[in-house]
């Protein structure tokens, strides 16, 4: 009951607010005669978006592919590293300072160096930037999840005389899944952001980031904003797909309290 009653509210309220904001924006641009290079009106962005939807689409595919490859590599390496760090705590101790450092460095700052390492005509640098950005939250959250095993479950496994591999498979790994997804949700947005920002530092053209800069450079501000809109949609798609995957893979979270 509570959920169905609040559903219109949770969906309607933000939509209404959004519509209102866009309307105000349009009104402000028209009434105050704001120049397009300062802020184009929503109508002109929408028109530009629909007329150049195919080029926004192809740019999104380039950036999206980089983000996806980075997300997959970063997530797999993060999960494996977390498992290794759980099995061999020494590796965790050795790598802890490195991980701490990596989590405070803006990873995209590495992009120029990576372009010279892997060649400015390849997408590799962007994918690596995304992978590095993804690695940190996936690794840290998975590690936390793997260490989260409840004492009662540990006792149970011991009472059953389960081998450590059996206990890992029956309790530790499935118990870490919700934590893994917390990391993945953060990582999915980070992957898109990093892949896109990585384009600002060089590399081949074709992605959303390059398209935004070149549209802005040629004073086509509405087109630049159309690409920005494409980037927002791409980020949302990554987030929502991850969320959907979570609902499919682990629909029954651990009850936080109670017996």
């Amino acid at each position: 009951m509570k959920q169905s009653a609040s559903l219109p509210r949770t969906i309607l309220a933000p939509v209404l607010l959004g519509v209102l904001a866009v309307a105000l924006w349009q009104l402000a641009v028209v009434a105050l005669e704001i120049k397009p290079f300062v802020l184009p009106s929503p109508v002109s962005i929408a028109t530009e978006f629909s007329s150049s939807v195919s080029s926004v689409w192809t740019s999104s595919l380039v950036t999206g592919a980089n983000a996806l490859i980075g997300l997959l590599i970063g997530a797999i390496v993060g999960i494996v590293a977390a498992i290794i760090a759980t099995v061999l705590p020494i590796t965790d101790e050795l790598s802890a300072p490195l991980v701490a450092a990596a989590s405070v460095i803006p990873i995209v700052a590495l992009a120029p160096v990576l372009y010279t390492m892997f060649g400015a005509d390849k997408e590799t640098a962007r994918q690596l930037v995304a992978a590095l950005a993804v690695f940190i939250p996936v690794y840290l959250n998975t590690l936390r999840g793997l260490r989260q095993a409840r004492p009662v479950h540990r006792d149970l496994m011991r009472a059953y005389g389960a081998s450590s591999w059996q206990a890992t498979r029956a309790v530790t790994l499935p118990g870490a899944v919700p934590f893994l997804f917390i990391g993945l949700r953060i990582a999915s947005s980070l992957a898109v952001i990093s892949a896109l920002i990585g384009e600002y530092f060089g590399g081949p053209i074709g992605g959303l980031g390059k398209s935004i800069t070149s549209a802005a450079a040629s004073s086509n501000y509405s087109l630049a904003y159309a690409y920005v809109l494409g980037a927002i949609i791409l980020g949302l798609v990554f987030y929502v797909v991850t969320l959907g995957l979570e609902k499919i893979v682990s629909p029954h979270r651990a009850p936080s309290t109670g017996p």
Binding site: V152, D155, L156
Partner: peptide, 19 residues
């Protein structure tokens, strides 16, 4: 006895695996 599964055990917390 533990390794031979001579006993069954139940705790104050049900301790079920939620997944």
């Amino acid at each position: 006895a533990r390794i031979d599964q001579a006993y069954g055990i139940a705790f104050q917390q049900a301790g079920l695996l939620p997944w």
